[in-house]
């Protein structure tokens, strides 16, 4: 291999080695912005999604959005006190069902994305922070702007993960707390798992129906 190319290659490898930690260090607000831009870009180009193809939306959310969420923490927040009463296996089932529920109910909102604009509010954090709030605003013609805020946390210097989403001040996660507690009171943890999965099945059936 001629020397100049070797040199270039080495330089590239060195650059890559430096770049990797930088990627892991991505600031939480940059992460939110990058994922949002990426998702909106796909939505704008994908006719299937615009026409309300739920399977296609769920596939995209699965690939692009969910890796940045901590569903165990989200589910623990939604279930509240009863979470500690659940066995590890029940916790896993709960997290799985809750994830499906959130994706099924909120992913569809993306199909109505047309002329909205996402504005990122000023963001400040200290380097040692492990729990932050990234605030954005959805602006649309003819309607009041809606605040859309993400709570993110990082554990042991790992990547930032979203554990709560707040729309107009309403947490999509903790808003379930009283309803879930109601279910646990009447049917225990297993009753809660059963009712979330029943809800998911009926949503799936309804959305399959709507497509026809």
């Amino acid at each position: 291999m001629p020397l100049p190319i070797m040199k270039k290659l080495l330089a590239f490898i060195a650059a890559a080695c430096f770049a990797l930690p930088v990627l892991a260090e991505q600031a939480p607000n940059e992460l939110v912005q990058q994922v949002t831009d990426e998702v909106l870009d796909i939505v704008q180009k994908d006719r299937d999604i615009q026409n309300g193809n739920t399977a296609r939306i769920i596939e995209m959310v699965d690939q692009k959005v969910l890796p940045h969420f901590n569903f165990t923490r989200m589910t623990a927040l939604a279930v509240g006190k009863d979470w500690r009463k659940a066995s590890p296996q029940q916790q896993q089932q709960l997290a799985e069902q809750f994830k499906t529920l959130l994706v099924r109910t909120y992913a569809n909102a993306l199909t109505s994305y047309r002329n909205q604009k996402v504005v990122y509010k000023p963001f400040r954090m200290k380097p040692e922070d492990t729990d932050v709030l990234v605030r954005t605003e959805i602006q649309q013609p003819g309607a009041k702007p809606i605040g859309l805020d993400y709570s993110l946390e990082r554990k042991d210097g790992g990547a930032w993960k979203v554990y709560d989403v707040t729309v107009a001040g309403i947490s999509l996660v903790t808003n379930y707390r009283d309803q879930f507690a109601q279910e646990v009171r009447s049917g225990g943890i297993d009753g809660l798992i059963a009712s979330i999965s029943a809800k998911n099945r009926s949503l799936e059936a309804g959305q399959a129906q709507a497509k026809k």
């Binding site: 109910t105 909120y106 309403i170 999509l172 808003n175 707390r177 009283d178 309803q179 279910e183 309804g206």
Partner: peptide, 23 residues
């Protein structure tokens, strides 16, 4: 969204309202 997301419409709307007010 409420039709799809709520287990109990009343609780869902109540808790959403209380969170919104607090915010």
């Amino acid at each position: 969204i409420i039709d799809e997301a709520a287990f109990d419409r009343y609780s869902y709307i109540r808790d959403a309202y209380l969170q919104r007010r607090r915010n």
